[in-house]
C-alpha cells in the first residue's frame, strides 16, 4: 500500500514539474511576440500621421513642433557601426587564426580568460575608458594630425570604443568556427606540399567563409544596438554627420537621452518607440540572416 502511495506521488510530482516547465516555456515564447506587438502598437500613432519613408529620410528633428526625422540618427548609427566593424574585423580575423592554427597551449591559456573578461566588462566601463583615454587621444593627437580641431566627442571615438566591445564577441564565434573545421582538410592540403599559411588562405578561410561573414553580421547587430558606451563618447548632436571627427547621435543614444521628456511632448513617446522598433527590426534582420547562413553552411558539410 505504501509503495502505491509513493508511486502516485512520484507521478504527481512528475506532472507538476512538467506543467511548470511547459508554463515557463510558453512564457518565454511569448516574449518575442509581446515585444513586437508592444513596440508596434506604441509607435503606431506616429506612423499613422507620417509615412514611414519620410520619417526615415527627413533630417528635421524638432519634437516640439511635431517634426520627427530619423535620418541623422540612422546615418550616425550606420557610420559608427561600420567604422567599428572596420577596426575590429582585421584584429578578430588575425587573432582567431593565430589562436586556432599557430598558438601554443600557454598562449591559449592566457588569451581565453582575457577574451572572457573583455566580454564581461560592462558597457559603462568601456564608456568611462573612452572618456578617459580615447577622447583626449582624438582631440590631442588624431584631430591635429589630420589638420582639424575636434572636442574628441565624435563618431570616431564612438566607433573605437565600440570596436573593442565587439572584438570578444566576434572572436569567440570565429574561434569556435575555426576549431570546427575538419582537420583532415588542412592535413590533405599540407600533405600536398602547401605551407601552413597557404593552407589557411586556401582551405581554412575558404571553408569558413560563410561563418566568417555571419560572425561579422552578428558583431554588426551587436554594435548597432549598443547604448551607454557609445552615448558617452559620441557627442550627441542631432545633425547629419559629415565626417568621422564630427559628433553623431545614434538611435540607441536617442532613446536613452530623451526618455525623461517623452511623456510631456505629444507624439514624442511614439517617436522614441519607433526608433526602438527600427533598432529591433534591423538587429533582428542581421541576426536572423547571419544565423541562417551559419546553419545552412553547416548543412552542406
Amino acid at each position: 500500500m505504501k509503495f502505491r502511495f509513493f508511486d502516485i506521488s512520484r507521478k504527481l510530482r512528475n506532472s507538476i514539474h512538467t506543467s511548470w516547465m511547459i508554463a515557463c516555456l510558453s512564457l518565454v515564447l511569448l516574449i518575442p511576440m509581446v515585444l513586437t506587438i508592444g513596440l508596434a502598437i506604441k509607435s503606431f500613432p506616429l506612423l499613422a500621421q507620417h509615412p514611414l519613408l519620410s520619417l526615415l529620410f527627413s533630417s528635421n528633428w524638432k519634437p516640439l513642433s511635431g517634426q520627427f526625422g530619423f535620418y541623422p540618427f540612422i546615418l550616425s548609427s550606420i557610420w559608427v557601426t561600420l567604422l567599428a566593424l572596420l577596426f575590429s574585423v582585421p584584429i578578430c580575423l588575425l587573432t582567431s587564426i593565430h589562436l586556432t592554427q599557430y598558438a601554443k597551449k600557454w598562449v591559449l591559456k592566457i588569451m581565453q580568460p582575457v577574451i572572457d573578461i573583455l566580454a564581461g566588462i560592462p558597457s559603462v566601463i568601456y564608456g568611462v575608458w573612452g572618456i578617459l583615454v580615447v577622447i583626449p587621444f582624438i582631440s590631442d593627437h588624431v584631430a591635429p594630425f589630420l589638420g582639424k580641431s575636434s572636442s574628441g566627442y565624435s563618431i570616431l571615438a564612438g566607433s573605437i570604443v565600440l570596436s573593442i566591445m565587439i572584438i570578444p564577441f566576434i572572436l569567440n564565434i570565429l574561434i569556435e568556427l575555426f576549431n570546427n573545421i575538419p582537420v583532415e582538410l588542412s592535413e590533405a592540403s599540407l600533405s600536398l606540399g602547401a605551407t601552413r599559411w597557404q593552407t589557411i588562405k586556401f582551405v581554412v578561410l575558404k571553408k569558413g567563409l560563410p561563418g566568417i561573414i555571419s560572425s561579422f553580421g552578428l558583431g554588426m547587430s551587436r554594435a548597432f544596438g549598443e547604448t551607454i558606451a557609445v552615448l558617452m563618447v559620441v557627442g550627441n548632436v542631432a545633425k547629419v554627420p559629415t565626417g568621422i571627427l564630427q559628433p553623431g547621435y545614434p538611435l540607441p543614444a536617442l532613446i536613452a537621452n530623451n526618455y525623461g521628456e517623452m511623456m510631456s511632448i505629444p507624439q514624442y513617446d511614439a517617436a522614441l518607440m519607433l526608433s526602438a522598433f527600427i533598432l529591433f527590426v534591423v538587429v533582428l534582420f542581421f541576426n536572423a540572416g547571419s544565423r541562417l547562413l551559419i546553419i545552412r553552411s553547416g548543412k552542406h558539410n
Binding site: 515564447l29 506604441k42 548597432f224 544596438g225 536613452a256 541576426n287 536572423a288
Partner: peptide, 19 residues
Amino acid sequence: LMDLLCGIPSIVYGAFGFT
C-alpha cells in the same frame, strides 16, 4: 528564437519594459 532574443539590444528591452 533564443539566440535572436540574446542579440536584441538591451535598450530595446528597456523601452519595452517602459511601455
